[in-house]
Design a protein around this nucleic acid. Structure first.
Lengths: 347, 347
DNA sequence: CTGAAAGCGCTTACAG
DNA sequence: CTGAAAGCGCTTACAG
């Protein structure tokens, strides 16, 4: 018995017919005699024949594979996006090749090259924190491979994207803090080379302006890595400075968590003295103590939308228009910022 | 300008030489004149030539792609495994195709077919909760594609696996509960068609036996879905029955969380009255209140080991021996089961 | 030092 | 109704 999967040639040989005939029999081609068709399909079943996608890809000049570049798979939001991409791809008969950049520019560029070599039909990418040079991405576009950005989009490129309304999400969060009575709100911002970071900061500033609260630049602290430790350190320092602070809006939940820990350690009550809102709404936001208010991002939906967009571009041979799909966020208020419930609970 | 990526043929045409020569020039083949070599490499650079992996795959009968079948990407443990696979694969020059089964047998079988069609060089699989028929997996082996199981392995198949020592992990957890003074320990078990579920149950039973604590079958509750809700319901019911319970060992952290919530709602103190230990050590285990003791599984390492094993099997044209790599777990004791610290803290 | 040919697995326009 | 041929992009044994 021959090793490896059966080919059309194997079937043809065994039946003493040509490959052409086998190929046609396998796909209900019009003029094929019922008897050969039967013989072929039976043998194909018996040997568990599966069309060789590689051969098909070469011939059809399309692989039915999409590539995904993602900063980290171990991340609630991103794993949710992957899940959405996966489900949509499977539905459409595509396979998914995933590369994680680990937030590293070099690796992102290498991964793009690997996926382009693999001749993926389209690319879904969320750039790394480090990425500012866009040459590797521009090459993709100039070589005619459809590309869609998700979450972390890139400006000045002719490519579609799926994002959430970061500005509005941030605005909602800060407005909520203001309504809770906060007047001295710290913003732990994301890295400014990511648009999501800038947009969330803009939302923060606009909300303060609309409520005529003066903006204090010292209250805006850039957290480059977005880690819990980094935020905790920054927050501890800020609290030690003796400056008046009564609210925190963090541009991601890990940073919010760091801030929360710093505040707790300083024996300052949450939310009565300092109210906290994060961004992203991880699975754990509802589990920590106090539970963390957060701006929820629809990751699964983002994955599905990004996949839908890329399939559209692959199939319509791209009419050239780039689409930006903006998904709504939802503010989830929990204990860390809910002063009303707290007061009601302690008469 | 031609659309799409440049081929050897394009370069050959522009230089008026044959494809053979271009191919050889590109790969430092001995007897190639320095001048042609220079011309070729310059043009290749200029046009950003990337070898077409599809063509190479067809010729070499190997794709340098491995397929991964995973129950869910949105799951801390599994996303960690993916990360390990990803890192190891990138290091070895492989691409990774991922399919999530969503714990669904049908979809698992379809995904295997898709990956086999794609002619992946090897398959890394963790079966779905539903899977009991193994035909789809046996086909893979009989067709000569290397396959390695991780976490959820399968018995009676000639395939390598990477698992953690579920028995020992469970034993450690239960022994720890006993040392804390627990004598009436509930086990929220995993589905019995998964070996990990059975092994953890065995560890639970052995620990009780070794400490001469009678085993009460009513205290072993199978949680088929492993969801928080399912466990919370089961636990609430058990508490309401009035039976004496002073410890819980859950075979996964979501179930532990459900149990924890049920106990809290019943106004029973953790860990003083009921101590709880989970399995898996999610990111959130240290964030909930009280923090959750758990048996930590090295997911990242599991991913890397599984990838290493499959590469080995791919390259050594499989000497046929199947290897079982068992990784150690580590019991992480936190508030939910640490009675000593609690007592010390309340004199 | 370079080229023509064959072949990986498949499909399809062209003959018969 | 069926087959031979060409071609997708690449490599390599065989000639020269």
């Amino acid at each position: 018995m021959k090793k490896g999967q059966v080919t059309i040639k194997d079937i043809a040989k065994e039946l003493n017919i040509s490959c052409s005939t086998v190929s046609r029999a396998l796909k209900d081609f019009p003029g094929i005699s019922p008897s050969t068709k039967k013989a072929v399909t039976e043998l194909a079943n018996k040997y568990n024949y599966r069309p060789n996608s590689i051969a098909l890809s070469l011939r059809n000049q399309r692989t039915n594979v999409i590539g995904v570049i993602i900063p980290e798979t171990v991340h609630f939001f991103f794993s949710t996006v992957i899940s959405g991409i996966e489900d949509e791809a499977m539905k459409e008969g595509y396979n998914v090749m995933i590369c994680q950049s680990n937030e590293n520019y070099e690796r992102e560029a290498d991964s793009i090259d690997a996926l382009m070599s693999a001749r993926v039909d389209g690319l879904l990418v969320s750039i790394s924190r480090e990425t500012s040079d866009l040459e590797h991405l521009k090459k993709v576009v100039s070589e005619g491979t459809p590309m869609v950005f998700f979450d972390r989009l890139v400006e000045g490129m002719n490519a579609s994207s799926v994002i959430v309304d970061d500005y509005q999400g941030a605005y909602d969060a800060v407005e909520h803090l203001i309504e809770q009575g906060c007047r001295h709100i710290v913003h732990l911002s994301g890295p400014s080379n990511l648009i999501i970071g800038r947009k969330r900061k803009e939302g923060y500033i606009s909300a303060l302006e609309d409520y005529e609260i003066p903006i204090n630049e010292d209250n805006i602290i850039e957290c480059r890595n977005g880690t819990e430790q980094e935020a905790e350190r920054a927050m501890t320092q800020l609290l030690a400075s003796g400056k008046k602070i009564d609210g925190v809006f963090a541009s991601n939940d890990m940073a919010a968590l760091g801030a929360l820990k710093a505040v707790k350690k300083a024996n300052i009550r949450i939310p009565e003295e300092v109210a906290i809102v994060g961004f992203s709404n991880w699975q754990f936001s509802s589990l920590i103590h106090p539970t963390l208010s957060s701006v929820a991002q629809p990751g699964y939906e983002m994955g599905r939308e990004a996949a839908k967009l890329i399939f559209q571009e692959i199939n319509e041979s791209s009419n050239g228009k780039s689409i930006i799909r903006i998904l709504d966020t939802e503010l989830i208020v929990r204990e860390s910022s809910d002063r009303k419930t707290v007061k009601a609970a302690m008469p």
